[in-house]
Design a protein around this nucleic acid. Structure first.
Lengths: 190, 190
DNA sequence: CACTACATGTAACTAGTTACATGATTCG
DNA sequence: CGAATCATGTAACTAGTTACATGTAGTG
């Protein structure tokens, strides 16, 4: 339900091909949304049919073309409308919490190890998010620069701070989870 | 992928019918996992075929029966094995963060309102999770009592604390999100 | 007798995953 | 010239959503 909005959000920075978008959403760079190219290409075609984006064919060689998609006015309006509307919280469905709920069934050391792995992953996530947050604050991100190029300089600092705040939140959540997991480890060994 | 494990986890406390499970997972009581009955009934039948659970028909009236499912040894082993194994983090796909990432596109007051709504929802979630955590700590939950009935009294306190820790984590995450959202509101109005 | 709760399903759909498939262009 | 990258797809599948469907049993 949100993949189209995720795509609109990236295309708002600059026009891109499905391939560019797929690299963006496939990689860890996707951050708040992930999607494989097998989902992206058909979605782009549907969005074009709905008039949210426009695809322009670009020649890349004698026999190779790519379709570069850009936002239409309708697409911009759709994105802004969606962002301005409060949506119901998605239902909780967290496999790790489900797992943790049953740590009492297994050996304390095994549960401890599972938490250690979790902590390592969250640590890495936190570091990546913090790095990205700082890049945004320093306007040191390609995509951000492209976004800012269509906005007045007076807004630049505010926009960068708002975007950075999202990644600060991701990092903060990961840090919180780490401290929670450490408490869990202490409980297990009591 | 985890619905079967969620079901195994509840059936570990006591045998239940699909209807009981559906009430559990449909309601806000589901907590860490949610699923509609249209997903639960077929899943139970598949799990029975795989030998993870056993269904026994119970007569509830002259013409009404229900099937009560209970864990088999294989089901118990599957659950314990899954809990003891570290699983890769699910990819991030958070519609609210996606929305927040584009607050710069809309009016600050509208974005502020969206955050206010978010804070209210997280506040409610935190309160519910805290209430549930305290119930578990006081062994004041039906399901927990039934779980404990098959475990030695010496373990009871430890089990209750481990379960409560999960809900403490849910509450803590909600509280963190609230403080993050308030920071966002401050940023918007700067 | 009406309403609520009990009990279990199917059907049609959207979203997302995993694997397979194909070919062009660039760079060392 | 071989490898990596560019570029775009399809097919088969699993998971989850929403709506429709049916009937029983208990309660006031």
């Amino acid at each position: 339900m949100s993949l189209p909005h995720a795509l609109l959000g990236v295309l708002d920075a600059r026009p891109m091909s499905g391939y560019d978008l797929a690299r963006f959403f496939d990689a860890a760079t996707g951050w708040v949304w992930a999607a494989p190219h097998s989902q992206i290409y058909p979605t782009l075609r549907k969005m074009e049919q709905r008039g949210l984006i426009r695809g322009d064919d670009e020649v890349r060689g004698p026999r190779l073309t790519r379709t570069v998609y850009s936002l239409t006015e309708e697409g911009k309006a759709e994105l802004a409308g969606w962002v301005a509307t409060a949506h119901p919280l998605p239902v909780i469905r967290d496999p790790f919490l489900l797992q943790a709920l049953h740590f009492d069934l297994i050996d304390a050391n095994q549960a401890h190890d599972v938490l250690t792995k979790f902590i390592e992953e969250q640590e890495q996530l936190a570091e990546e998010a913090e790095e990205h947050r700082d890049k945004l604050l320093n306007k040191d991100s390609e995509l951000l620069k492209e976004r800012l190029s269509s906005r007045g300089p007076a807004e630049h600092e505010r926009i960068a701070r708002l975007k950075a705040h999202v990644f600060d939140g991701i990092a903060g959540m990961a840090r919180y989870k780490i401290s929670w997991a450490r408490q869990g480890q202490a409980l297990l060994l009591e």
